[in-house]
Computed example of a mutant assay.
Amino acid sequence: MSETIYRRIGGRDAVETVVNDFYDRVLADERLVGYFEGMEMEQLRAHQVQFVSSVAGGPVEYSGENMREAHAHLDITEADFDAVGVHLERALRENGVGDDDVESIMDEVVALKDPILGRT
């Protein structure tokens, strides 16, 4: 059995560290913070940990809402989606995730762009 990205990067603790760093970055970004007003951040963080763990091959299946439905009310712009992606990529890299693993995780995120932006 091949080693998963999830195991290679350090499992749940590493994913939680990345997600916390990611949300710190997003919430400090004045372009993005408005999307999170009134949101239950602990719940969002938990869903993001679950999502990243899942796409990294961890022993977790993402059980959150359908991506299109979960984001439809936010009217997210493409520029803001891309800015969130930059924050996630930086959080991954700055917390020790290797280039190939960052690329694999970001490929999964980019695959969700159209549904999140309501295009499909």
Results as ranks from 00 to 15, higher is better:
Thr77Glu: 09
Met41Lys: 04
Asp82Thr: 12
Leu32Asn: 03
Asn66Val: 08
Pro115Met: 11
Ala72Met: 02
Pro59Val: 05
Leu44Asp: 12
Arg25Pro: 07
Ala70His: 09
Asp75Arg: 12
Ile9Thr: 06
Gly85Val: 13
Arg45Trp: 04
Ser53Thr: 11
Ala70Pro: 06
Leu74Thr: 06
Asp101Phe: 00
Val26Gly: 01
Glu65Ser: 14
Asp13Trp: 03
Leu44Ala: 10
Lys113Met: 06
Ser53Ala: 11
Leu117Pro: 05
Ser53Pro: 12
Gly34Ala: 13
Asp101Leu: 02
Arg90Gln: 15
Ser53Gly: 07
Glu16Arg: 03
Val97Tyr: 06
Val60Gln: 14
Glu65Val: 06
Asp80Ser: 05
Ala83Gly: 09
His47Lys: 15
Glu108Asp: 08
Gly98Val: 00
Phe81Leu: 08
Gly11Trp: 12
Thr4Met: 04
Glu30Lys: 12
Ala79Val: 15
Gly34Ile: 03
Gln48Gly: 06
Ala28Val: 01
Arg7Val: 03
Lys113Arg: 10
Val109Phe: 14
Ala72Pro: 00
Leu44Met: 15
Val55Asn: 03
Ala83Trp: 08
Glu16Trp: 13
Asp99Gly: 14
Ile5Asp: 07
Arg68Thr: 03
Leu112Ala: 09
Val109Ala: 13
Leu88Glu: 05
Ala46Pro: 02
Glu65His: 13
Gly96Phe: 07
Gly58His: 08
Leu74Asp: 03
Phe51Arg: 01
Ile9Glu: 06
Ala72Lys: 12
Arg12Gln: 10
Gln43Trp: 06
Gly64Tyr: 05
Glu3Trp: 09
Arg93Asp: 07
Asp100Lys: 14
Leu44Pro: 11
Asn95Tyr: 05
Gly118Ser: 05
Ser104Leu: 14
Gly10Ile: 01
Gly11Glu: 15
Glu69Pro: 05
Ala56Asp: 00
Gln50Thr: 10
Glu16Ser: 03
Asn20Asp: 13
Glu3Gly: 01
Ser104Thr: 12
Asp75Asn: 09
Val18Leu: 04
Val33Ile: 07
Tyr62Pro: 04
Phe81Lys: 04
Glu69Asp: 15
Phe81Met: 06
Asp80Ala: 07
Ala83Pro: 08
His73Phe: 08
Glu108Met: 14
Val26Glu: 12
His87Ser: 05
Ala83Asn: 07
Arg25Met: 06
Ser53Tyr: 09
Gln50Lys: 08
Ser63Phe: 11
Thr120His: 03
Ala56His: 02
Arg90Cys: 08
Glu40Ser: 09
Leu92Thr: 02
Val55Met: 01
Ala79Asn: 14
His47Cys: 10
Leu112Ser: 06
Gly38Phe: 02
Tyr23Arg: 12
